[in-house]
């Protein structure tokens, strides 16, 4: 493993919008990051093909959320509602971009939501999305799209639960993998030399080596940080540190110490912004 960290530049930040509170929080965080990296903010609204299929189906049964009444819904109605939703999402994104003074664009796609977001993710450097979206599954479980992005090894995925600032302090997990090196570089770029509190958690057998490597990256980024050794396996220490310091978490994905299950388990226990880097 080389000691030189891979540099990564964020030029386009994608945010998947569906007007849910969680996706609005993701849009805000995306705008903040776009501003920090002087990147373009790209909004994506996907018209869910499943919904359109559903309305054409003879067995479609729609229940109104506000009145609990059951009505037959025509596909034209759904299309109109989706357009209205897209319009709201576009306006919200425009406002955020104006406030953050970043360039922005907005796209509307039609198809399977996860597939469309994954496809769009390949053309962007960072994807910001709500952790739960409009999912009706258990709130603590990661949403379908988020899971797909992590599984597909998307380079940078920012997961946001609620409306809060993406800002220091930052806690970064470093396991020596390429992903963790990239993650640490990105964290230093985001934080800059003026960072108030930066905590690097080394995760792996060879803690001295990990500390040296991390220190090099930090030095390269002109950032000072506190280094704490987690040992070979992830435990509740990370959760406690993140909660106590109300910090944002930077996680490498696909490394030797952090499998999908570990990451899922970790995310289920915290509600702070998480940047997952592959």
């Amino acid at each position: 493993m080389t000691a030189t960290p891979a540099t990564r530049t964020i030029r386009r930040v994608l945010v998947a919008l569906d007007t849910s509170p969680s996706s609005m929080a993701a849009a805000r965080a995306a705008a903040r990051l776009a501003s920090r990296f002087e990147a373009e903010l790209v909004g994506l609204f996907v018209e869910d093909l499943d919904l359109l299929h559903l309305t054409n189906s003879p067995m479609a049964r729609h229940v109104d959320l506000l009145t609990a009444s059951s009505e037959t819904v025509e596909s034209l109605d759904v299309e109109r509602q989706l357009r209205a939703q897209a319009g709201r999402a576009r306006r919200a994104l425009a406002q955020l971009a104006d406030r953050s003074e970043v360039a922005w664009s907005f796209q509307v796609a039609r198809g399977n939501v996860a597939a469309e977001v994954l496809a769009a993710a390949t053309e962007n450097d960072l994807v910001s999305l709500g952790r739960f979206g409009l999912s009706l599954r258990h709130r603590r479980r990661l949403g379908k799209i988020a899971r797909a992005l992590l599984a597909e090894g998307n380079r940078c995925t920012l997961l946001i639960e609620r409306m809060e600032e993406v800002r220091p302090p930052v806690v970064a997990v470093f396991d020596g993998s390429e992903a963790s090196r990239s993650a640490l570089v990105l964290a230093t770029e985001f934080a800059g030399p003026k960072l108030g509190a930066f905590l690097v958690l080394t995760l792996g057998e060879n803690s001295d080596q990990l500390r040296r490597e991390a220190a090099e990256i930090l030095e390269e980024g002109d950032v000072t940080a506190e280094l704490i050794d987690l040992g070979p396996a992830l435990d509740s220490k990370v959760v406690n540190l993140v909660r106590r310091r109300r910090a944002g978490l930077v996680l490498p994905v696909g490394g030797p110490a952090l499998g999908e299950e570990e990451i899922q388990g970790l995310l289920n226990q915290i509600d702070c912004p998480v940047l997952a880097v592959s």
Partner: peptide, 18 residues
């Protein structure tokens, strides 16, 4: 499923809406 104005049930097969 969550629709723009409410919710709906749909048959699925292999995790995909029919």
């Amino acid at each position: 499923l969550r629709t723009p104005a409410g919710m709906a049930f749909a048959p699925v097969q292999d995790d995909e809406i029919l």
